[in-house]
Design a protein around this nucleic acid. Structure first.
Lengths: 246, 246
DNA sequence: GTCTGATCTTGGTCAGACCAGTATGCTAAC
DNA sequence: GTTAGCATACTGGTCTGACCAAGATCAGAC
């Protein structure tokens, strides 16, 4: 890993970026701190302001700092949007990546649900229960149903009380909601999915309530597997009505 | 989701960024394509060159494009380094996040090993076997041992043939190697760890060879759990020599 | 003590310029 | 006809200095 520490060798953008990275990584610049002004930074490092802006902008898209108009540049707590942007772009150029990302999503959720079994508190249970109820209520609506589905799964991750898992999970939120929604659109056509959706989520919920990690993980995995199967069949045209319409 | 499509409303940086994002997401700009020159982009969008550079730089740190000196700006395939940067910064500012990241690592690897059981080919098996052998050979060396350990786990993820999982995993590489290394430093002091390290990894390897996802996952999880246990005890001072030195 | 307004500072942006190499094409030599 | 060679246009990389709008600050008026 080439985390150049020298603020000397590089020039221009690299110089400024390295300078700031150093302070950021060393901890001398912490979230909440305000950087010196762009002008000062420029003269300090012997570069022009546009260059300083490039570096600040770079840190901005990385979610490290926030440039506030007419206020200054402040260090922020890293947040999800970066990953969001990244995945958005990445997926646009590699559509085949979608299934791949889904695998990561499964990974995150299955780990999250295990942690949730240990760490979930009453509030988490209640959130899950509400989401579960919502799924039942909105079973016939594509949009609302998709949201409810997503909320349930998000509640699981939140209940893990793991910020990293939550971050990773929400970074895929865009895709997930899409996925959930399209799944819901199938519901109208295929009655058996209603049972699948409601029962599966209830079983998952119960496993968490029982604080049984193994069962929760297994149930969740099965849930995903069945979902995949539905989608697979939908593509082929086969479904409940196996012998009906082609 | 606020993926502003309008290249109209925003101004300055946002304008350029949105303009490029639109093409990138729509697919009219594909990896390998060369963008028009900064100057042209500037006049085209009615902004100054420094602003264009900010936008290009932003896309650069997101790993979307690459600015080649005196050549031009070309669209690249999104790659890992972005997430790497992000996690590096994120973790630097939240040391307490380390355990949390380990959870994500467990998540990724357990999912990866499941996929690996399905998708691994001969080359993957061989890589795993080599890594396994290396672990045995370097069992008494802290540095090399840590590397071997890391290599083995990385081989698992690679064998999953999931780019997303690989990306996420390597983005935590920095922390992981650290973790592996410090674990290895304990080996010298506590003989029972040698057996643990060698046998565990062998069992994991065998499960993958057997293409048994459930067993592989379970074994890997157990491996992590035991590792945690060792670390936990190390902190307390308790170990093999329970009744020996305090 | 409080309110108000001038001033300083900050980010946001622009215009034009220079440098150093790359790419290209045209010319001149073979 | 082909090719070597060089001038030129073009590219990114950077700097200088300037202007704007609006938040922050502090002096002075009330």
């Amino acid at each position: 890993m080439e985390l150049k520490r020298t603020t000397e060798g590089e020039k221009g953008f690299e110089k400024v970026f390295a300078f700031l990275r150093e302070r950021l990584l060393a901890g001398s610049l912490k979230p909440g701190d305000r950087l010196i002004s762009e002008r000062e930074l420029a003269t300090l490092l012997g570069v022009s302001r546009p260059i300083v802006r490039e570096a600040l902008r770079a840190l901005t898209v990385l979610g490290i700092v926030e440039i506030r108009d007419r206020i200054g540049t402040v260090v922020t707590r890293p947040d999800v949007s970066v990953l969001n942007d990244f995945f958005t772009f990445a997926l646009a150029q590699q559509a085949d990546m979608l299934d791949d990302v889904m695998q990561a999503r499964v990974a995150i959720e299955c780990q999250a649900i295990r942690l949730a079994c240990e760490r979930a508190n009453i509030a988490d249970f209640e959130r899950l229960q509400r989401a579960l109820a919502k799924i039942g209520e909105t079973i016939d609506e594509a949009d609302a149903g998709g949201m409810a589905d997503f909320e349930f799964h998000r509640a699981i991750v939140v209940a893990s009380h793991s910020e990293t898992l939550t971050v990773l999970h929400s970074s895929m939120a865009g895709l997930l909601t899409h996925s959930h929604r399209s799944r819901r659109e199938l519901v109208q056509a295929f009655p058996s999915m209603k049972t699948y959706l409601i029962d599966d989520h209830r079983r998952i919920f119960e496993a968490v309530i029982a604080r049984d990690p193994e069962r929760a993980d297994a149930t969740l995995r099965k849930h995903f597997a069945i979902g995949d199967e539905y989608r697979r069949r939908a593509v082929v045209g086969d479904i409940d009505k196996t012998s009906a319409s082609g």
